[in-house]
Each structure stands twice: as structure tokens, then as C-alpha cells.
Design a protein around this nucleic acid. Structure first.
Length: 297
DNA sequence: TTAAGCCCGGTTAAGGTGCA
DNA sequence: TGCACCTTAACCGGGCTTAA
């Protein structure tokens, strides 16, 4: 595949023509080009960076073309409750072909945005695929009165506003919150196959509602819950492997889903504090040792 | 005080895998 | 063999931190 190598000044000056030439040299569809630092010393320096835990290096960046767009009718807005109780509006759209795929859903982020922008049933929106992947409501072309839900779609509890977000206050008893919390645990752990959302939902329906109980399940338990022979064996084998296979301590900590303690912050914390000491550490200590600023601490 | 940058928590679609 | 499910990729908005 063709590439262009040259000084930064020239790249900035002739950016469009350089990209265009590269683009036309490829015989199949591409969604962008990659800009890369070639100086080995500079690459090494950039890798030292800085903002901890980046899962990627800093010396490469993708450049993508302006995406296709389409005018699309909103069929309805459905609420979805996340693990922390936030109720997110998802727009169901008239199925629309964009950049080679058919899109029928897009997130509306929060009900504050739904209200403010008038994203109701029958609204017309401009739809793009951000980065040529994620369906995105770029703007609202024709507003429609939105319906704001009063109750949690999962447990029917009365919803409350928190800034722009609608929140289900039924912590600890809302099925969606419980299922999503368990799912988050296994997704973050990343050392277990076959235990996705549908499996976790099925376990929930059978009264298995926490990670601890899932790890205690045996083949017969799974079979009793309606799983097949092979799947039951696989799940127990995977749980056993997950329990015994070493993983990074930060991943284990992040799996619990503590607010503001995701993958990066967990790694940052455990570089300075032993996992066993996490519950003993004080706010002042975290701040004075410059592990976190006050609010996060 | 403000702007820039980063992290978290969230989203969807496509493709692969394996069960029934 | 069809289909349900899982995994992966890529991005966004909001909140927080940091540095000037």
C-alpha cells in the first residue's frame, strides 16, 4: 500500500492533495488514513507518555473523511436502565442504509437532550456514522414533543431527575441495575468466555443475582436453569478458569464498578497502594500522595 | 479563572462462534 | 443449519483534573 513520508510543514501545507493521492491509490474502500511519527527517538519519547494506561500509543492517529448523512424519521424513543440507574433514551429509527450498513437505533444520550432538542416520535433527524462506525444524531431537523418516562422500564420505580439525567433510585433491587452490574464485572475481568448478557439475564430469572453465587454454580445448577449439557459444562469450566487464572489486580478492582474507579484509575491507585490496603486508605492520604485530586479521592 | 486534556460510562453494528 | 449470543471496534458527552 502506498505511503507518503515527509516533513510536517509540507504535510500541513499540502494536506488535502497528499491525502487525496493516497486515497486514490487504494483499489478498495477505506475509511481513512493513518498519520504516524517516523522519527524513532520522538516515537520513544511519546511512548513514555504521560496520561497513564492509554491502551494505544501516541505516535499514530487516524484521519477519517467526512461521513455520509441521511434525513431519518424517529419512530420512537425507548428508555434503558444502566447499572448505575441512569435511564438512557435510545432512538428507534426508520431503518436507513448508511456507509454500507442498515441503522435502526441511535443513542440520544440523556433525557435532558431529548427534551431540549425535541427528539420525540415523528421527529426528523440528521443521522451520520461518527468515525464511520457509531450511529450519531447530528442534529434535529424537525422537532416533535418527546415523551418523558415517569417510571423505570425495568422495575417501575418512580424516576428522579439528576441534572440532565433521569435516574432509577431503586438501587439494589432494580433488575436492570443488577444484571448490568454483574455483566460489567465479567466484561471488565475479561477472562471468561460465554457469560454474556443473555446468560446473566437467564441466571437472574432463576434467582442468581450476584457474582459470588455465579462462581458457586455447578453443572447441574445450570442444567436446572434450562442451559444445555455442553453449555453448562463450558460455563463451569470457564468459571473455574476465571477463578484460578491470574489477572491484573487493577482489572479485578475495576470489575466491581465503583463510581470513578474504572480501569485507568484502578491501575493508578494500585501502583501506589496494595490491593489488600485499598479499604484502609484515607482521602487525605490519596490527595497528599498525589494519587487522585480531592473530588476523585 | 479558564481552557485543554483525560477518564468513565455509555452507545451501536458486524462478524465469529457454538449450541440446539 | 439457523440463530442466538458474544466479542470487538470506535466514538461521544459529561465530569474531573491540571496547568497556565
Amino acid at each position: 500500500m502506498d505511503s507518503w513520508v515527509g516533513p510536517l510543514d509540507t504535510l500541513i501545507q499540502d494536506f488535502s492533495s497528499i491525502i487525496d493521492k493516497l486515497w486514490k491509490s487504494v483499489k478498495y474502500d477505506v475509511d481513512g488514513v493513518v498519520l504516524e511519527v517516523t522519527d524513532p527517538q520522538l516515537k520513544k519519547y511519546m511512548d513514555l507518555d504521560l496520561s497513564l494506561n492509554k491502551p494505544y500509543h501516541s505516535w499514530q492517529i487516524a484521519y477519517k473523511i467526512d461521513p455520509e448523512k441521511a434525513e431519518v424519521k424517529v419512530l420512537s424513543i425507548i428508555p434503558q436502565t444502566s447499572r448505575n440507574g441512569r435511564v438512557t433514551p435510545v432512538a428507534l429509527l426508520e431503518p436507513t442504509k448508511l456507509s454500507g450498513v442498515t441503522i435502526s437505533r441511535a443513542t440520544a444520550h440523556h433525557y435532558g437532550m431529548v427534551k431540549k432538542k425535541g427528539i420525540g416520535n415523528g421527529a426528523i433527524i440528521e443521522l451520520i456514522r461518527s468515525g464511520m462506525v457509531i450511529p450519531k444524531i447530528e442534529r434535529v431537523l424537525k422537532e416533535a414533543d418527546p415523551e418523558i418516562p415517569k417510571n423505570c422500564p425495568s422495575c417501575n420505580a418512580n424516576l428522579v431527575w439528576d441534572a440532565d439525567n433521569l435516574i432509577c433510585p431503586n438501587v439494589g433491587d432494580c433488575p436492570a441495575q443488577i444484571i448490568n452490574t454483574v455483566e460489567h464485572f465479567f466484561i471488565t475481568l475479561r477472562n471468561i468466555n460465554g457469560l454474556g448478557s443473555a446468560t446473566i439475564e437467564k441466571l437472574f430469572e432463576n434467582g442468581v443475582r450476584d457474582v459470588c453465587r455465579i462462581y458457586k454454580l455447578r453443572i447441574d445448577d445450570f442444567k436446572n436453569y434450562g442451559f444445555g449439557d455442553k453449555q453448562s459444562q463450558n460455563l463451569v469450566a470457564e468459571l473455574e478458569r476465571s477463578r484460578t487464572e491470574p489477572i491484573e489486580d487493577w482489572r479485578f478492582l475495576a470489575a466491581f464498578g465503583v463510581h470513578q474507579l474504572g480501569r485507568a484509575n484502578s491501575e493508578q491507585l494500585l501502583k501506589r497502594v496494595k490491593l489488600d490496603d485499598v479499604f484502609k486508605v484515607k482521602v487525605d492520604d490519596l490527595v497528599s500522595r498525589k494519587i487522585f485530586a480531592t473530588k476523585t479521592a
